[in-house]
């Protein structure tokens, strides 16, 4: 049975490493749902957070194959019941009439999101949360007319003292 799994990897922060990680998925016939990358806590390393939708056997294979990449320093699978996973999205909405403006502000408040840009005929909302919350806000904004969406993909960490950090 396929389910969404989040894999967190610490990799060398060097040119070409993201290519090697993403190429491995392509070559082994695994799908990436989302991927996000940024510098990690130790200098010279980056954290790659990859969301996959695969069965247990395939997920296990992904992790083992990732571990074999020389540039991958550590890989772990995050436990869905014990992690914080967030995504950020910027949603630009079309403003057809002035009354739409206040409705959008109200919705944005309900979603604890913020208006980060306004122009005569558009507003841009910044929203953070789990993916379903972002999906819901986007669904709601469709009624007003979506202009553009940019989503970061999921980034995540294990809760509490459990860490996916490098042991020094």
């Amino acid at each position: 049975m396929n389910e969404t799994q989040i894999i967190s990897a610490i990799v060398e922060h060097k040119p070409g490493v993201l290519y090697k990680v993403s190429n491995l998925f392509r070559r082994r016939n695994y799908n990436i749902e989302s991927i996000s990358v940024g510098a990690a806590e130790i200098e010279g390393t980056a954290r790659v957070t990859i969301t996959v939708n695969e069965n247990e056997q395939k997920t296990e294979q992904v992790i083992k194959q990732l571990n074999k990449l020389v540039e991958v320093i550590k890989v772990s699978r995050l436990d869905a019941s014990n992690m914080v996973a967030r995504e950020m999205a910027l949603v630009k909405v079309h403003i057809a009439n002035p009354s739409a403006r206040s409705d959008i502000v109200q919705y944005a408040n309900i979603f604890r999101s913020r208006i980060v840009d306004v122009s005569p005929d558009s507003m841009t909302i910044e929203v953070t949360g789990d993916s379903s919350k972002i999906d819901a806000l986007i669904e709601l904004m469709k009624g007003f007319g979506l202009k553009e969406i940019a989503r970061t993909g999921i980034t995540a960490l294990a809760r509490g003292a459990r860490s996916t950090k490098l042991e020094e």
Binding site: G16, Y19, K20, N23, L24, R27, V70
Partner: peptide, 14 residues
């Protein structure tokens, strides 16, 4: 070369 060889080597680098 690194792009071409990555999937067919254990490791490759420039």
């Amino acid at each position: 070369t690194v792009g071409i060889m990555t999937p067919v080597t254990k490791y490759c680098t420039q």
